[in-house]
Design a protein around this nucleic acid. Structure first.
Lengths: 208, 208, 208, 208
DNA sequence: GATGAATGAGGGTTCATTCAT
DNA sequence: TATGAATGAACCCTCATTCAT
């Protein structure tokens, strides 16, 4: 079953791997620098010092190329997340949340512009790509934290709570990394994101 | 000084007003249904039952057309916001925040898909359009609330706080309106958004 | 027999005459200022403060409009020529040639840019317009001069000679009026044109 | 620094060279046959039996294509001029002028119609193209002749004189080659052009 | 008579994709 | 396998001309 965005063939020789690598790298740079609309196969292959034909030897079409790039990108993010989140499962909830935020921020800082472009254009096109391995990883960790600290927190609906936390994480990270707001120091923002999430989770009473 | 996105001429007769209206309407529908990339002048004019020439009588180019649509859209959002936010400036902070959330949600529900597409594609292209009247309105109200309840809240940095509140508002509303999450009832989500913002604002102590 | 470039109807009322006049005037200005390619009916009617419909009430199409303008222009040139050439038929050949040159230059100076544009674009399109009344007038005068001074000149073939004189007149005048050559004073050029034509006509011996 | 009329890429393979050649050839024929206004990329590519895409692989836009054609054309003219003018620098002025006229006529006869169209439309659009290699060549030769025969001639102002000679050359050649005047034999015309120029240059006295 | 809204064929240009070499 | 020349559907936009009001 060969979907439209499946890579055409896997390169076996090292030379071919280098070609594919340089194509992906070029795609990433063009996307990040010039945006989705200005990203065309000519620009990519020129920057990659490769002929168009080569591109189509490994990718059936443009979308598949970008899908592959997306996959590679989220895989790289997942590496960072796994590295930063593999420990600390016995810490306080505050520590764990703060650690989570730091990890997600680090992952977003890998290639902010590329991430931005892919998120805005590609994922919107292909909703299936929304639930990437990295997303799932973060998702799982959030659920786990909420689960393990359920007693401690006033949270009733874990589904709702984790959804909220994920949304806040994502959007605040986006804002922090991708839109460098002048006059707002990054460390203060990171602190504030933690405050917001923890505030939501641990809010003692509803002062209606 | 005629910028590239200024409408070409204002329709005077009722007939031409109807034409412009139908063009804008068609543009909105095509954008919402098919997305930015698939929105071309042919599709628009076909749906509007109008010739290409008519489009270009009133808009100097495609971008100007979308700019006009954006302007119209945010104006409509502003109407809703003004209607829902004109009162209640003497209520408790909780009430005010909840009212604000409800208003912003209502505004986003006007044309969710169109809003989404414009936000993701058009505004990204033309950053000048980021600070729409509607945005400024909400921005002002948030600052005002924080200002007037400063004593009550533990907030120190008002810039930071209002930035955070705005981000949370925006992204959570987006999520709520644009991505109909199954298993999460809208009213509960709205409640949760309030909880999150109020939690952030009124969080009594930092439990580090 | 209604050819394609025949004016549609002659305006009888003074108001209509004013309209036609202002259309022609606007056409002349647009042609002279912006060139043939940038001359379109919209620009013309805007400058004329007249609706497109009005234009098409008096001219069946764009070509007819320009033909009419051309006709008007050469008529104006003819007026100047007639005024300056009506006397002096008994003077010396030198005087007559110099007078002719002065007259043709004066005629070209009426609307140099417009003349340039019409000559280069319109006449090439419609070769029939090449032999305008003004041309015929000059043509006749040249023949007459050559005829009357035949004995005096070494000229044998009057056809050839008048052809040559006309060509020299035309091109040198063009150059003088339309391409203001720096470092070459106009009066010296005018003198030189006379020298050239007279030199050709009166050249005593062939120094082969 | 890539100006708007610089060719896009130089064809390396023989196949692509043939393509470029056939495009230029087709452009020349369309221009010569149908004129500047009726020359569009569709017509060109159809006649060249080539797709539009191919045209735009080698020329960034229509103007660049025509610029390239112009360049090629004047280069071809320069070849003829160089061939015919490389000798004879020690002959009498009469011989030299006659030789010059014959050479310029030969160059103009290469592709009269194309030359005409390019001169009238393209060069007028892009004045930078006015001073082509061929022009400069002729210009230099005229100056040289006048300079070397200065004593012999009554010429005082060499600037003025060479300007006049060039104008006469150009316009008379134009007329001779491009407008086949019936009843005027070409050889007689060529003779007359020489008479005119020599007459101008050697005119003994001013018979005012 | 006058207006100007509406039309749509036509033109320039791009770019994903194919395929002969 | 790699190349890059060739393709052509599709897109944006212009402007001469018509016609209902």
């Amino acid at each position: 079953m060969q979907t439209a965005t499946t890579p055409r063939k896997t390169p076996r020789q090292t030379r071919s791997q280098a070609t594919v690598e340089s194509i992906l790298e070029a795609t990433a740079r063009v996307l990040a620098q010039h945006g989705y609309a200005a990203t065309n196969t000519n620009r990519i292959t020129e920057l990659a010092c490769v002929s168009v034909g080569s591109l189509y030897q490994y990718f059936p079409n443009k979308l598949a190329l970008i899908a592959a790039l997306h996959e590679r990108h989220v895989a790289q993010m997942a590496v960072v997340l796994l590295r930063d989140l593999s420990t600390g499962s016995r810490e306080s909830i505050t520590k764990r949340i703060r650690r989570l935020i730091a990890a997600v921020l680090a992952a977003h800082r890998l290639e902010p512009d590329l991430h931005w472009v892919l998120e805005r254009n590609f994922v919107a096109l292909e909703p299936a790509y929304d639930v990437s391995p990295a997303d799932q990883l973060v998702h799982g960790i959030v659920r786990q934290i909420l689960d393990e600290h359920r007693a401690e927190l006033g949270v009733v609906d874990i589904n709702l709570a984790s959804y909220m936390v994920l949304r806040m994480l994502e959007s605040l990270d986006h804002a922090t990394v991708l839109e460098p707001t002048p006059h707002l120091a990054t460390d203060k923002l990171e602190q504030a994101i933690g405050d917001a999430i923890l505030g939501y989770l641990t809010r003692p009473a509803r002062l209606e």
